[in-house]
Design a protein around this nucleic acid. Structure first.
Lengths: 152, 152
DNA sequence: TTGAATTATTTAGCTACGCTAACTAACTTA
DNA sequence: TAAGTTAGTTAGCGTAGCTAAATAATTCAA
């Protein structure tokens, strides 16, 4: 998804371009690692992500959930269908507007998410714990910046 | 793919668990932004990524490329087939071992990659440039840590 | 108050990209 | 040289994106 090393004509080290380039690469590599760990949870990343929104964002309509996950409604509709088949969420028709569906997590959904989250973060957390205190502080300070760059 | 906010029983702020949790979330959000920008380049992320390895890593065998991209050989074989159809790479049979294929970038491949890379990184780079110098330093310092966590 | 427009969701059908299994071809070695 | 190994391709499956079209409920205007 990105250059593995500085291409010819690489930007000046420390410049915004260089940071962007390396950050791009680092994010991709980090994501691949996370995805590898997500795979172990027995539920795919998009499903886990959608489930997460439902668990922590409470009952939510299909369209709102799709927007939160940045996918189209039909994509989310199918995702929710499989989550429902797996007993992780339920669809409840909104009594005020019967076109609308409220998607809620089941107890099984909440349990699976929390277990999965713990497993997912455990390995990364262990690596972070093995960093020097200084490095850990740097990482912590960088997180809000990453979130800002991600557009939150 | 991850909690949007601290779940009940969230770890102590600043602990390795908390950093792992937030980093997980930040990486996902950052990735989504990058993917959105990648989409604009007219070539899918997996293709762009593979092309990148070929361009910067020189002629490379199928199996090595698959390993570099962390996908199975058949997946890469198909990816390369489409890149070849698009005229971005060529397959050359290795004269020493005629089972083996050397995948090389074409001039068109190099051109597309560099143009795409510039476009991709430009928006992110602009946002980084707008950070305070201090924050930019923090980000720069964090990048090697991210790469280390990603397993490099 | 009903007919038209809008809104929320689902269904259908396409593409891309992961995977495994099975195949072909080429090389190595006992 | 036959048997085993290695490199790559082909076939076929599942998941997840998308758009277009269908369905159903609601809103609104004449």
């Amino acid at each position: 998804m990105s250059p593995r090393q500085a291409p010819t004509g690489a930007p000046r080290a420390g410049s915004s371009d260089a940071i962007a380039d390396r950050l791009h690469s680092a994010a991709i590599h980090l994501l691949r690692r996370l995805r590898r760990e997500d795979d172990a949870s027995g539920i795919s990343a998009p499903r886990l992500s959608a489930l997460s929104v439902v668990v922590f964002g409470g009952p939510i309509a299909m369209g709102v959930l799709a927007a939160a996950e940045q996918v189209r409604v039909p994509t989310m509709s199918r995702l929710v269908a499989t989550l429902e088949q797996d007993g992780l969420v339920t669809r409840v028709i909104d009594t005020n507007d019967r076109r609308s569906v409220r998607i809620e997590a089941t107890e099984a959904g909440r349990t699976l998410l929390n277990a999965g989250r713990r497993r997912r973060v455990a390995a990364l957390s262990a690596d972070i714990a093995s960093l020097k205190a200084d490095d850990r502080r740097t990482l912590l300070a960088a997180i809000p910046l990453l979130e800002k760059l991600a557009g939150r």
